[in-house]
Write a protein that binds this DNA or RNA. Sequence first.
DNA 1: AGGAGGCCCTGGGTGC
DNA 2: TGCACCCAGGGCCTCC
Length: 277
Amino acid sequence: MPELPEVETVRRSLEPILIGKKITQVEVNLPKLIKIPSGDANAFITTLTGSAFKDIRRRGKYLLFNMDNDWALVIHLRMTGRLLYVEKTAPIAKHTHFIFSLDDGNQLRFHDIRQFGLIYLVPSDQIDLISGLKTMGPEPLGTEFTLDCLKEAIKGKKKKAKVFILDQTCVAGIGNIYADEILFQAGIHPEETIDKLSEEKQNALWQAIKDRLKAGVEHRGSSIKDYVDGFGEAGTFQHQLKVYGKSGQACLNCGKQIEKIKVGGRSTAYCPECQKK
DNA sequence: AGGAGGCCCTGGGTGC
DNA sequence: TGCACCCAGGGCCTCC
């Protein structure tokens, strides 16, 4: 499940090889993934063909490819999306929905088993047309994400802690895996009401958000099931996980059994001893 | 405002 | 072996 560290790893893997490359041909096999212009493969193909990659940015879990014709190709990988840079002779894997042929003879392919991925093509100065980007909260690894910034976002909110950190308008880029890991490190119960946290816990949450995401990036993401970078390489952060996917196992910190509950409709693993309300 | 539920979708796992 | 069912989950939606 690509979250901030996985999306950032994809960005870093693709950036050096895509910048300056021109798209010579676009093949769309599943137009419904194009949200803007809605399902319009022809407009999508016409606009992108002949343009070159200028830069690749990331905002939350979105990848933004700025093209030299002032359009931006924006991609959200959701759960099973992959962006792969391959030779054009490589066999086409099942679930390959988009193929961008490049002027270096290789291809960038978008592959997505569950077809949940989202693709947008917007003028690069109008990325706010994408509602998820328009309302996106602060980048947790950026300088704007200060302790005061987090406290301000928390103020008056009655959401459960896990629901709060998964809310992209509160903090950008956190998904189910890192949410559980962050709350474990901060010693916060996932169902604790967020504005009931003590000063000390708010500080611990702030530190844990930055620390776990940074560690995820350093380990090139977590490859639980589907995630790989732009070259098909797996990450290694899955070996650092303390609670996600560990329900029934002993907590590495206290030995108590990790429990599994549902919070905000998401499966949640936590240690009842280390994460008390 | 928050919470619950549904929807999109495939494949892997389990139970009979 | 086959079939039914459940689960995984990000973002967006509706309804209460």
